[in-house]
């Protein structure tokens, strides 16, 4: 032992690397390398023949000169801000409801999770049916029951309205995530705090503002950050419900796989989107969370 001081530790280290190596290799090969390769491709005109042509910053210059890019950027910002805020706020509200005792609470808590766990493709069709111009309940309500509108409209077919539907759909689908995280934090708040505050004459609102919210600060901060990351990258929810809502991922997909296929340009959009994500997260962590 004494003559080989590092041997046990070395053995341990070797075992550690051996067991983690398969996972690391896969992640390096299928996540890290592709990300780097994506950056590389963004400087090329990608040809179907495989003979890619180096074009320097041309893809980026083309992108920044394209109006469609700025439109897509605007749509992305509205979508991400709307869905992130909506998900978090609704999650907060539902969590504070479910934190009270009532009959069948266990069942209700489980049912509320359904939108988050059921397959996206099924849910998308249900929502499309609800907004279907011929059969949907939405048009029945607005035209025949409430009389807000004179004629049946295809809400998902018009990009401006579709964006709103997509945001509401996203809130519906993902609020259970926020709700679960917040609820599990709520349940760990010490009840003594509330009792002491009640004795001091604090009303319900004051207790919420001065005890609950500060206790939830970290979990809400984390939820906003995760939802923000996921929603900026979100492809399937938007694409399957309303492909005419062109957020950056949808714009990238169309550029890469439809019409005049321009995968070099698509790679450039993905890079710009990623830089945007990193920049905004950095700002958020520094300015909002003050970590």
């Amino acid at each position: 032992m004494v003559s080989h001081p590092g041997s046990l530790a070395q053995q341990e280290a070797r075992f550690g690397w051996k067991t983690v190596a398969p996972s690391l290799l896969l992640i390096a090969l299928l996540i890290v390398y592709p990300v780097a390769y994506n950056l590389y491709l963004s400087f090329f005109e990608v040809k179907l023949s495989g003979q890619n042509e180096f074009v320097g910053f041309n893809n980026y210059i083309d992108l920044l000169a394209d109006r469609a890019f700025y439109d897509s950027l605007t749509v992305t910002v509205i979508y991400v801000v709307g869905s992130t805020l909506g998900t978090t706020l609704l999650g907060l509200g539902v969590a504070s409801l479910m934190n009270h005792k009532f009959p069948l609470r266990g069942l209700v808590r489980g049912l509320v999770l359904l939108p988050y766990i059921a397959p996206l493709i099924s849910e998308v069709f249900a929502w499309q049916f609800i907004f279907d111009p011929v059969n949907g309940i939405y048009n029945h309500m607005t035209v025949e029951v409430l009389g807000i509108s004179d004629e049946r409209v295809n809400l998902i077919g018009t990009p401006g309205n579709a964006l709103l539907v997509v945001i509401i759909f996203d809130i519906w689908k993902n609020f259970p995530f926020a709700y679960l995280m917040i609820l599990s934090r709520l349940q760990s708040i010490n009840n003594d705090l509330y009792e002491a505050a009640t004795l001091d004459g604090a009303n319900r609102w004051q207790r919420f503002w001065n005890i609950t919210l500060p206790e939830l600060r970290f979990v809400v901060g984390a939820i906003v950050m995760l939802r923000f990351i996921w929603n900026i990258n979100k492809f399937d929810e938007v694409f399957l419900l309303a492909p005419n809502v062109k957020t950056l991922p949808i714009y990238t997909y169309f550029t890469a796989f439809t019409g005049t296929i321009e995968q070099g340009l698509a790679a450039a959009i993905a890079v710009v989107q990623f830089l945007l994500l990193i920049g905004l997260i950095f700002l958020y962590i520094r300015r909002v969370l003050k970590w």
Binding site: W17, Y37, L41, A267, A270
Partner: peptide, 30 residues
């Protein structure tokens, strides 16, 4: 298992949360 670089790898793995499918779509296809 205790070894140098472990926490670095762990953090690195968590960072992959940031890479969405769209960033990987074109390179993986190519």
């Amino acid at each position: 298992v205790r070894y140098r670089g472990r926490s670095g790898i762990q953090r690195g793995v968590l960072l992959t949360y940031m890479f969405g499918g769209v960033l990987l779509m074109v390179p993986l296809y190519q």
